[in-house]
Design a protein around this nucleic acid. Structure first.
Lengths: 189, 189
DNA sequence: CCGTTTTCTTGATTTTTATCAAGTAGCTTG
DNA sequence: CAAGCTACTTGATAAAAATCAAGAAAACGG
């Protein structure tokens, strides 16, 4: 069983039959460190599942890069609004490491409902789950200091801090590299 | 045609037949200023559409209220994760003014797919749209100063500023009432 | 209409965070 | 290994925003 199948099984509780049908629609791909999965302005025609490696999602604000999120093993990634509404992508998505992904084309993705009857329900719950995580993240910006946000992410996602340049983590927490460096020093003492 | 029907028509492009079927499932209700539509910890068993008035969504952090959002006319509101996963609600939802709403019970809501064949697709696009708005909001916290966030909201949602106590707007922008007061003074000059 | 409460404003001060600048540590690669 | 990167740290300073405290304005209720 591939990681993709394991994930689908664990997260969506697909049975063996559905698993095979769905995972057949995904194609394995690799990206090298620095390669782009997606660029701002282009249409997003694929959804990807990360098998291994790190993918940074960011926007370029007149030369200044703002990191929105870093996706790790076990995440699905796409520019959702671009994928569904065929609008231009708002994000760049670049491999921070060599990357193994499973990719499904938009056309196939849109046909999932025909192949697996319970897909629409599954998809709804998945989107709702994503939405809820976003709510939590917004709440962290409203109600926490920089230091608390750092702690919060560190508790939840410790692996990230070994693997990712701190400046990107700083950016996704809405602070500067200097600030995160000082917070980290305090934590160590 | 009620506002609910107009909205469903405009936003989801339902035809007349579907409109009638769907809006029949909603029941009109009124809340008085100060009443709660939902309280933290309770299950959210309804989805509501706001016909008129203002609904404040907030969390109580040991006595300190943090406003997550203020919903106005034309919004659908629920604690999505509670509604779909039957978990306890994370938010309080309180009427800031007298409120006219249309309410659909969870059971009915879950049956929409049977009644309207294209509902799952519609719902997916709706959730994706919500998700995208959340992404934008997160991005505003990462990449903007307090003053820029104020401007951004003011441009997009000017009516809010006449109708809502400024302290709530401050909270949803992640700043103090004093800060928003000073920003506002600058804007006027 | 008057007193009460709530909301908003203002000033003084402190805390937090950003910015600027310089230096260090750790990789990478010819 | 040395040169060149990149990431990270540190210090000094500036800017932004929070906090505290007091007063003004507006809204509300009898």
């Amino acid at each position: 069983m591939t990681d993709l199948e394991q994930y689908l099984h664990a997260y969506f509780t697909f049975d063996q039959d559905d698993l095979v049908k769905v995972s057949a629609l995904f194609k394995k791909k690799t990206l090298n460190k620095g390669d782009y999965f997606l660029k701002t302005g282009k249409p997003c025609n694929q959804l990807c599942f990360i098998q291994s490696g790190l993918l940074r999602i960011y926007a370029d604000m007149d030369g200044k890069e703002v990191t929105q999120w870093i996706s790790t093993k076990g995440y699905f990634v796409a520019d959702l609004s671009s994928l569904l509404f065929q609008t231009p992508s708002r994000w760049n998505m670049q491999a921070l490491t060599n990357l193994e992904i499973f990719v499904i084309e938009r056309a196939e993705y849109n046909r999932l409902g025909e192949i697996i009857p319970k897909w629409p329900e599954t998809e709804k719950l998945f989107l709702a789950h994503c939405f809820t995580m976003m709510e939590d993240r917004i709440f962290s910006f409203i109600s926490m200091t920089a230091e608390e946000r750092y702690q919060f992410l560190f508790e939840k996602n410790r692996e990230l801090f070994n693997q990712v340049p701190l400046q990107y983590i700083a950016s996704m927490l809405g602070m500067t590299p200097e600030t995160i460096s000082r917070i980290r020093r305090k934590q160590l003492q």
